Simulated assay, not measured.
Amino acid sequence: MRKTIYLTCCLLALLIGSGSAWALSLNEAMSALPAAKEAGLLGEQSNGYLGVVRASGNAAEVAQQINAARKAEYQKVARDNGISLNDVELIAGQKAIDRTPRGQYIKLNGQWRQK
């Protein structure tokens, strides 16, 4: 049974994968996030999601993977607490900006700036 599931997953990965580049997993994106923030490639936004400060390497893909996971979690929190998704996003965005270390990027009033 496990072998069948494994083979099915491998086949799906081959069918879905792009020719020369494989998509990052969420774990890989999470591992790459600190370095991308330190390098000034990604930053926190007030809407609760990561933004691309400078497009380089796989920064956009890292942001996409993490933002998808964040959105899923925000939706769960909103549903569980009977509040709007927008409210959860804004609260999460403010917390992320507050926790961003000095020297990393945040987006305020539509402009990227170092904290």
Rank of each mutant, 00 (worst) to 15 (best):
Q75K: 12
Q94N: 02
T8G: 08
T8F: 07
R70W: 09
L41P: 04
K115G: 11
G48Q: 03
N47I: 02
L26C: 07
N86Q: 15
A72N: 05
A78C: 00
Q75Y: 00
A59L: 11
L14W: 05
A96P: 00
S18Y: 13
G82K: 06
A13R: 06
N27C: 04
A32N: 11
T100R: 02
P34T: 01
Q114G: 02
Y74D: 02
L33F: 01
L85R: 00
N47C: 01
M1Q: 14
N109D: 15
R102V: 14
A69R: 01
P101M: 13
G103A: 08
Q64A: 15
E44I: 03
S20W: 12
L90E: 08
E28W: 00
I66W: 03
K95M: 12
I91E: 14
K37L: 05
L42P: 07
G57L: 04
G17M: 12
S20Q: 11
N27W: 07
N86V: 14
S31Y: 08
A96C: 02
D80F: 06
Q75R: 12
G110Y: 02
K37I: 01
A35Y: 06
S31D: 15
S20I: 12
G93E: 07
G57Q: 02
T8A: 14
G93R: 03
E38D: 11
S25H: 10
Q104W: 09
K37Y: 03
P34A: 04
E38S: 13
G110N: 08
S20N: 14
A96D: 07
A59G: 11
Q104C: 05
A36R: 03
G40N: 02
R102A: 15
R102L: 14
G103T: 09
S46H: 10
G82E: 04
S20P: 04
R54A: 12
A96N: 07
R70T: 11
V77T: 14
L24D: 01
N27F: 10
E73N: 11
I97V: 13
L12W: 05
A32W: 01
N67T: 06
Y49Q: 09
R113N: 01
S46K: 14
A13H: 05
R79I: 03
R70A: 13
A21Y: 11
D87M: 14
G51T: 03
Q94Y: 00
N81T: 12
S18F: 12
S46N: 13
Q65A: 10
R54W: 01
A32P: 04
Q65L: 09
R70K: 13
V88F: 00
V88I: 04
E28G: 07
E28V: 10
E44H: 10
V88A: 01
K76Q: 14
A21R: 11
M1G: 15
E89C: 09
N109V: 01
C9Q: 09
E89L: 08
N81F: 05
L15Y: 08
E73S: 13
L50M: 07
I5P: 00
A60G: 09
N58S: 08
G51I: 09
Q111G: 03
Q111P: 01
K115N: 15
A63I: 06
T4W: 04
E44L: 04
Q65S: 06
A36M: 02
